[in-house]
């Protein structure tokens, strides 16, 4: 069975690009549009990896990660990759403090994206 990746991003363009790259690499993709939606989708699915954007309406990526880490035991230890536009350390640091597993720099290269997912997926 193929692994499931949950992508949380408010941009349709980004969601489509993530889906394209991940599906091509054999992953199954479920999508959410923001942090709140992400938590709802998570409750009803069993992803192997989560990829989340940071800047989102309603609940941003930091809030989303904190909620996953502090939430249900089933999902607490899920690998979460953060999509960030800048590769600057401050952002990474904050994402790490919130409990992110790793990060992907936008715009991403499909190969690197799949690499990063593989590197954290059990």
């Amino acid at each position: 069975m193929s692994k499931i990746v949950l992508t949380v991003d408010d941009s349709r363009t980004m969601r489509d690009m993530l889906r394209m790259a991940l599906v091509a690499a054999g992953y199954t993709v479920v999508q959410a549009e923001d942090g709140v939606h992400g938590l709802e989708v998570l409750a009803g699915s069993n992803p192997d990896v989560i990829i989340t954007d940071i800047n989102m309406p309603r609940m941003d990526g930091f809030g989303f990660i904190q909620n996953v880490r502090g939430g249900e035991e089933k999902h607490r230890a899920l690998p979460i990759l953060v999509l960030s536009t800048e590769s600057d350390d401050a952002k990474k640091q904050r994402a790490r403090a919130a409990g992110a597993t790793g990060w992907i720099v936008k715009p991403f290269d499909p190969v690197k994206l799949v690499d990063a997912v593989r590197r954290v997926a059990a």
Partner: peptide, 15 residues
């Protein structure tokens, strides 16, 4: 929201 709008455009444009 205003910031996000510009940010999203930038993100997509980069791709």
């Amino acid at each position: 929201a205003v910031f996000r709008a510009v940010h999203s455009i930038k993100g997509g444009a980069g791709a």
